[in-house]
C-alpha cells in the first residue's frame, strides 16, 4: 500500500534519468550538443589565430632598404636583414606567446577555455527547464508526490553536470583531433581531474540558475537573466585571454570568477605544466563555490518551491 518510503536517492535517480532520456531521445538535441563544440572550436579556435600575428608571415610585406655603412665601405643587402629580422621575430613571437598565454599555441589555450564556456551554456538551461516544468504542470504534479524536494532540485543539477561532462569529453576529443599540444606533465589520471572540476562548476552554476528560476514563470525573463550573468562571466575570465593583460579592475573580477578557476585547472591538467599548489587552490575554490551555491539552492527550494 502507501507504506513505501520514497528515498531521496530513488527520486533523484528517477528524475535525473527522465531528463537524460528526454535529452537522448531527441536526436537533434544530441547532434547539436556535438556540433556546437565543433563549430566553436573550428571557427573561433582557428579563426582567432593569434599565433599568426606573432609569426614571420605578418612581416612579409615590410619594406626594408639596403643598409650601407660608408665608414667601413660595406652594404648589407635588404634581403639578408629581412631574413634575420623574420627569424628573430619568429622566436620573439614564440616567447611572447609563451609568456602571455603560458603556452606557445593559442589554439590549445583557447580550446581548453571552450570547456568552461560549454559548462556555462549547458548549465544555464537547468533554470529554463525548471520554468518549463512549472508551466507544463509537471512540477506541481511532482510536488504532490512524496518525493523529496531536494531530489527535484538536485535532479536538475545532476542532469546539467552530466551533460556538461559529456560535452567536455567531446571538446577534449575534438581538440586533440584539431592539434591540441599536450603538456609533458599530462597523464590519463588527469582526465578524472578534469571531470571533477567540470562537475564542481556545473553544480555551482546550475544551482545558481535554478535558484533564480524557482519562482519564475516566464522563460523570457529567465533567458534575459541568464544572458546578463553568462556574458560578463565569460569575458571577465581567462577563457579567451589571460587575466594578466587585463586592467586592474577587470582582473579583480576575474580573480573571483569561478569560471577562471575551472579554466585554469583544466589548462594545468592538459596543456600547461602542472603546479600542484595552484591546482589545489583551484579545486578548493570550485568546491566551496559548488557547496555554497547548492546549499543556497536547497534552502531556497525548500522555502519557495511550494508557493
Amino acid at each position: 500500500m502507501s507504506e513505501y518510503r520514497p528515498s531521496i536517492l530513488r527520486g533523484l535517480l528517477a528524475l535525473t534519468i527522465r531528463e537524460l532520456k528526454k535529452w537522448a531521445k531527441e536526436p537533434i538535441i544530441l547532434l547539436m550538443a556535438i556540433l556546437q563544440p565543433v563549430i566553436w572550436m573550428g571557427l573561433l579556435g582557428k579563426a582567432m589565430n593569434i599565433n599568426a600575428i606573432f609569426s614571420a608571415n605578418s612581416l612579409s610585406n615590410v619594406n626594408i632598404p639596403d643598409i650601407s655603412i660608408p665608414d667601413y665601405g660595406i652594404t648589407i643587402p635588404s634581403l639578408l636583414i629581412k631574413q634575420r629580422l623574420l627569424e628573430a621575430f619568429d622566436s620573439i613571437g614564440a616567447n611572447v606567446m609563451q609568456n602571455v598565454f603560458g603556452v606557445a599555441d593559442y589554439f590549445s589555450y583557447m580550446s581548453m577555455g571552450m570547456i568552461s564556456m560549454i559548462v556555462m551554456f549547458t548549465t544555464m538551461f537547468s533554470g529554463m527547464s525548471m520554468v518549463w516544468d512549472r508551466r507544463l504542470g509537471f512540477l506541481d504534479k511532482v510536488l504532490s508526490t512524496p518525493v523529496s524536494r531536494a531530489a527535484i532540485i538536485f535532479s536538475k543539477v545532476l542532469n546539467a553536470a552530466l551533460r556538461s561532462m559529456f560535452q567536455a569529453t567531446i571538446i577534449l576529443a575534438l581538440a586533440v583531433v584539431f592539434g591540441l599540444k599536450i603538456s609533458p606533465t599530462f597523464s590519463p589520471v588527469n582526465l578524472l581531474g578534469i571531470y571533477a572540476a567540470v562537475f564542481l562548476l556545473s553544480v555551482g552554476l546550475s544551482s545558481l540558475f535554478l535558484a533564480l528560476a524557482l519562482r519564475s514563470t516566464r522563460h523570457e525573463t529567465q533567458m534575459a537573466v541568464v544572458n546578463l550573468i553568462n556574458m560578463p562571466l565569460m569575458f571577465a575570465s581567462n577563457v579567451f585571454f589571460p587575466t594578466s593583460m587585463m586592467p586592474e579592475w577587470l582582473r579583480a573580477i576575474a580573480s573571483v570568477n569561478p569560471v577562471s578557476y575551472l579554466t585554469d585547472a583544466i589548462r594545468q591538467l592538459t596543456i600547461m605544466p602542472l603546479d600542484a599548489s595552484m591546482l589545489v587552490t583551484d579545486f578548493i575554490y570550485l568546491g566551496v563555490f559548488a557547496a555554497v551555491l547548492s546549499a543556497i539552492g536547497i534552502t531556497l527550494s525548500w522555502k519557495y518551491l511550494t508557493r
Partner: peptide, 18 residues
C-alpha cells in the same frame, strides 16, 4: 498527505518524449 493521495492534474504532465 502526499503518500495517501493520487493526483490527476488539469494539465497533461506525461512526458511527450517517453
Amino acid at each position: 498527505v502526499r503518500k495517501v493521495i493520487g493526483v490527476v492534474p488539469q494539465e497533461y504532465t506525461a512526458d511527450e518524449d517517453l
